[in-house]
Amino acid sequence: MLCERCKIREANIQYTEVFNGVKTDHHFCAQCARELDFGQYSSIFEGEFPFAEFLSALLGGETPSKRQEKYQQIVCPTCGTTYDEFVKNSCFGCADCYGVFDVLIHDNIKHIQGSDHHKGKIPAGRQADGEDAQQTADPSETGEQSVRSRIQLLERQLKDALRKEEYETAAWCRDQIRALKEGKENDV
């Protein structure tokens, strides 16, 4: 396939742009891709994050403005990154950002990564809880497991609420989840 811009060189870069929920595939040669202004991250074509710059478009473009306004005030308490900054730079400020922005970015991460769950290596010393074991509710489950399944249920409700844009329900779920998680940590 020829590059859609110069129509001279072979297109060896393909990317999927999502804007307002519409997916479009583009094919560019390396030169045109570099020349096109994709914003401040055009160095990415020679760098190692080939998809990072499209993430901004993904995050910004796909989010309904109503939702965006609602979330603009969210700030990570640990590092001070705001949701706006995150959307602009596609970059997290600290490990806690993942938790803070989780409900906002979950679907986007799933879109970029094709998955929303880590599979593979776990740091030594960190317990490898069987993911499958968690999902089947065991009547003789321990207290910790019951908390975990409660959190999972709430997370499902939360996602549901967000999909339906029922933000008050979502906020309630979030608080419950946080309380349960904190309670769990305090017990340890």
């Binding site: 596609s90 970059c91 997290f92 938790g99 970015i105 880590h118 593979g120 960190r126």
Partner: peptide, 27 residues
Amino acid sequence: GSRFSYAFDEKYGYLTSFPTNVGTGLR
């Protein structure tokens, strides 16, 4: 990893600056 505690999350795996590296963090 035996000397420093990594930023790691059960769900998202190894946490990274860019969400394009999260999970295994492996390229």
